[in-house]
């Protein structure tokens, strides 16, 4: 048995280190399609998180009972069940939201974030860890979709969560709420975030290197290499 990571880390890894959108680049279809406004992004992420948490919990509970030959089929049936629950409840209680998200709610079934977590995590870990992992991934997904939706909404229609934040003098960039805007925003955000990571990594490397330079062993090593 490999060393277990702490429970809080199990949750936190989904936020950034393994963020489903920015790091794993999974679930691109809803990410690009529904983020025309922050509210849509948040609603989509909430629906996805609900499905993710409950599927992870159930699958983790019965992981030892499912024969490995039919595991994918079983996962899909369980995921589809929870997606249908979300779809029915939304159509019954939140018809406007349901209309705004349209076909993307049923499409959560094939969201690879969800199936990916079942196969990569819930199928191998206990229910508690699986739920924490699912919550973390869901939160990471929410962060990504809300920020993407927020940026597109502010620039594309001058509003944030339906409230006007930019003056009328600002001409909204229509392209931002069209599909092209999704690709532009996601690409630029990913590039920016990765450049931050890259810069930090390089600084850390430089710090480590500088430290080693001072020790005699490193100096010797340097000498040999030179």
């Amino acid at each position: 048995m490999k060393k277990q990571v702490s429970l809080s880390k199990e949750y936190a890894k989904g936020l950034w280190d393994q963020n489903p959108v920015f790091k794993q680049v999974l679930g691109m279809c809803p990410t690009l399609a529904v983020t025309v406004s922050a509210m849509n992004g948040i609603a989509m992420a909430l629906a996805t998180t609900f499905v993710l948490v409950f599927s992870s919990f159930i699958i983790s509970l019965i992981r030892k009972l499912i024969p490995s030959q039919v595991r994918i089929a079983s996962y899909i049936v369980i995921i589809a069940t929870f997606v249908t629950i979300v779809d029915l409840v939304m159509r019954a209680q939140f018809p406007d939201l349901s209309k705004a998200l349209g076909p993307y709610i049923p499409l959560i079934v094939v969201n690879c974030v969800i199936l990916g977590r079942q196969e990569a995590f819930a199928a191998k870990n206990n229910p508690l860890r699986s739920v924490l992992d699912a919550l973390g991934m869901g939160t990471g997904f929410m962060l990504a979709l809300a920020s993407l939706g927020g940026i597109r909404e502010i620039i594309g229609s001058r509003t944030l969560l339906g409230m006007q934040v930019l003056p009328d003098a600002f001409e909204p960039w229509l392209v931002m709420i069209l599909p092209a805007g999704a690709f532009l925003t996601l690409g630029l955000m990913m590039g920016f975030l990765n450049s931050l990571v890259e810069r930090r990594k390089r600084r850390d490397e430089a710090a480590v290197l500088a430290q080693h330079m001072r020790t005699p062993a490193a100096a010797m090593l340097e000498g040999q290499e030179g």
């Binding site: 009972l65 499912i66 024969p67 039919v70 089929a73 079983s74 049936v77 369980i78 589809a80 069940t81």
Partner: peptide, 9 residues
Amino acid sequence: TLSLIGVVS
């Protein structure tokens, strides 16, 4: 397994 999951769902 598959039948049970199907029936319960």
